[in-house]
Design a protein around this nucleic acid. Structure first.
Lengths: 251, 251
DNA sequence: CGGATCGTTGACAGGTATCAATGCTGGTGG
DNA sequence: CCACCAGCATTGATACCTGTCAACGATCCG
């Protein structure tokens, strides 16, 4: 449980906090939101547009969270006043279906926001489960609200995040829920490869691929095995690389 | 760019122009957003939380728009600085797929916001086409931004609209893209019936049902015809009523 | 080594797409 | 008014795709 920044209890004494903040600014460990300013992925996350002043004026705890593969971040229909910024790793958003099966409705990567629905006080719409070891920041919704009322600087980033929700949803329907299993699987592999910095990317289990594409585990396995036989896909443990051109022309 | 929202049907054009002319008259008589205050569906739309002051202080044109069934409100990948509030009618959001076919990714009804992606300056993600005669208000994005910077009162409503985008997307994946054609069709009929005020609801063409559920027109027709034969669905022209219990228990 | 988990493959049944033909209905023009 | 047309709905035959049930292989780890 790293980094509990218990500053909120001191809000009645702003002067003392200023002193404290300033004093520890020079330290290696930075309290409050100071560390957000130095975050190596700040340019990609929610606070990208904020200025040093904005961050310095807030005194609320942002906790670091580390998840191991398989850990649940939050449950479907749960409620809590936090949104999460993904620093590294991979998270699946899972919905339970009436018949007992599950459907993965989105994948979240570095820079993405998890649990954005907490911003309007709603229950989480899906269960969030880590596919890999994942690190993220837990941000109280009240911070967002305060930053937003102080200045409209956060507005654009919030709109952008919501927009990504919509465009991802579109992607899911267009690429992963339309056409036959072979075509959908090819689209998924291309999607996974596009968002990797090097040649190799994380290949989910056949069960997860099935839940992503709304096909059975067996069908997912058959298609993946066939791609491998045809030389369009190479796998090594949980990682894979593809022949883009071949997969783009699946028919 | 006035006239951007016009469209395929010749019949719609004179009517819309007529309406715009008339609109300029009422703007004179009734400046600012005064008419929004008196809108009969204001309690359901974006400006629900605003006070009379907020509306009175603005002087920007909000045009009324009337669409006939089949008219296009905006094109996919088009860009314009407007969002649209639906006062009455029904709109489908359509995405063109690489193979030339189309997928309906959402339906919009009274109170819904169309083209919400314009709020962050993005291109429209889908084409918007009226399924029935539809009336809506065209709101310049600048009004939203101005209202939002003056007071945070719009914030909640905006979050709510974005949240609806997400939860609708979930619905589409869970109800309309999972399971066999019979089950998905039953879910669609229940969805359409749930949002109607009386016993009868609008039944889309078989082609649209197919585009909604990602099945062929023929399959949609077969399932609908079968439901009718089994007495679970009655149709009269473009309208229908259902036996809820029977459809809820489709295997 | 043995068990657990995941991936692969086979056989078969059932569901869906495809191609094609035929009703059905509202609207149009003679 | 009626015949006709265009678009939509329905239905059939068939091939293909996918789900289901079952068995077996591969890998990892204690």
């Amino acid at each position: 449980m790293p980094g509990l920044y218990l500053v909120s209890e001191l809000t009645a004494m702003p002067a003392a906090i200023d002193m404290l903040m300033h004093q520890q600014d020079t330290d290696h460990a930075c309290p409050g939101l100071e560390k957000c300013w130095h975050c190596t992925c700040r340019s990609r996350v929610l606070f990208a547009d904020l200025r040093h002043d904005d961050l310095g004026s807030l005194h609320m705890p942002i906790d670091d969270i580390e998840l191991s593969a398989g850990d649940t971040l939050y449950q479907e229909a749960a409620s809590s006043p936090y949104v999460y910024t993904l620093r590294s790793g991979l998270i699946k958003l899972v919905r339970l279906l009436p018949n007992g099966s599950v459907r993965i409705v989105r994948l979240l990567r570095s820079g993405d926001l998890a649990g954005i629905e907490a911003l309007n006080g709603s229950l989480y719409l899906q269960q969030a489960i880590a596919l890999q070891d994942t690190s993220l920041c837990r941000i109280p919704v009240r911070i967002i609200e305060q930053l937003n009322s102080d200045s409209p600087r956060l507005y654009k980033q919030l709109m952008t995040r919501w927009h990504k929700v919509q465009s991802d949803a579109d992607l899911w329907l267009a690429k992963f829920s339309t056409g036959n299993a072979r075509k959908r699987t090819a689209n998924l592999l291309l999607y996974l490869a596009d968002n990797s910095h090097d040649e190799f990317f994380f290949l989910p289990t056949r069960e997860d691929i099935g839940a992503l594409l709304s096909v059975t585990t067996e069908t997912a396995s058959r298609v993946i095995a066939d791609f491998k036989r045809q030389g369009m896909l190479q796998t090594r443990r949980q990682f894979a690389s593809i022949e883009r051109y071949a997969l783009q022309h699946i028919g």
